[in-house]
Design a binder for these strands. Sequence first.
DNA 1: TATAGTCCCATTGACGCCCATATAATCCCA
DNA 2: TGGGATTATATGGGCGTCAATGGGACTATA
Lengths: 153, 153
Amino acid sequence: MKSFIGTFVNKIDAKGRISVPAPFRAVLQAKNLSGVACYPALTGPCIEGCGLDRIEAMVETLPDQPIPGLDEDAIAHLIFASARELPFDGGGRIVLPAEFLKKAALSDHGAFVGKGRTFQIWNPSDLEQAQAEMFERAMAERQAMIEARKESG
Amino acid sequence: MKSFIGTFVNKIDAKGRISVPAPFRAVLQAKNLSGVACYPALTGPCIEGCGLDRIEAMVETLPDQPIPGLDEDAIAHLIFASARELPFDGGGRIVLPAEFLKKAALSDHGAFVGKGRTFQIWNPSDLEQAQAEMFERAMAERQAMIEARKESG
DNA sequence: TATAGTCCCATTGACGCCCATATAATCCCA
DNA sequence: TGGGATTATATGGGCGTCAATGGGACTATA
C-alpha cells in the first residue's frame, strides 16, 4: 500500500486551485480515486486530506441504527460535517473552498505534507514554524530521556 | 456506497422551498430516488433526512406486532408518524412543511449537514453553536484518551 | 373564488471542463 | 557521455454547462 510521503509546495491561483503533487495523486489513483476528501484538522491551523475511501470506512464504523443516534462519536460527525469531496480537474488540481483557505490561512502557496495514510495542507510559513517547534520539543524529550537514563543507570 | 458529506447552506424562499445540495442529490440519484424522507430529529433542534429506502429498511426491522413498553418501538412509530416524503421539483428543491420550519427554527437559510448515511437540516446559527459544543466534547474525549494512554503505557 | 400546492421556465453566477504554455524530468540514440 | 526529443508536471486562462434561485401559470380543494 503506497502512502503519502514528502512535502511539496504548490501555487494557489486566483480561482483557488492548487495542483495535488503527482506522487500523492499516484497514491489515490492506485485506489481508483479521482479526487480527495479534505477537512479542517482538529489539531492545528491546516487542512487534512485523504482518499474518499477513508471517509467511507468511517461511515462503516458508525452504528447503522435507523433510529437517530445518540451522537456518540462527536469527532466523526464533526469531520463528516466539515469535510468536502474535492475532485481533480484535468490537470490534477483541486479547488480549495473559501472555508479551507481561511482555516489554514492559505493565500498564494500551499504545502502538501505527507502523513502516511493522510496528508495535510499548510501555509508554508506556518508549517516551517510548526516544524521548528516540533523539533524543539523532540530535542527536549530526548534530553529528558538521557537525563533519566543517567540517574537510573 | 456514496454517503452524505459536507455542509451546504442554501436559501429558503417565500414558498418554503430550498435546494437540496447537488452532492446530496447525487447520493440519492445513485439509488434511483427522486426525493428525500425527512423527520424531526430526536436529538436536537433540526430536521433529519435520508433516502426513502432507509425508512423502508426501518420498517423491516420492526416487529410485526408492536411490543408494548419497548422504547425502540415507540421511537420508530414517532418517526413514522412525523416523517414526510419530500419530492424534488424540477430544480432539485424540496418544500419544507410548516412543522419542520418551526421545529428547526428555520426562516431564511437552511444548512444541510452530512452525517454519512443521513443528513440534517439546521438553522445556520444554531448549527454553529451546536458544533462548537460538539467540538468541546470531542476535545475532552481526546484528552481523556491521551491521559488513559499515558497511564497504561 | 380564494388559497395552497405543483409544475414549468428564466436568469445569473459559479464551477467544471478543456486547451494552451512553460518548465522540468526522462529517455533514446548517436 | 552529450545533445536532442519526448513525456509529464505545474500553471494560466477561456468557455460552456449546471446549480441555485426567482417568479409566473396551472390545478385542485375547500
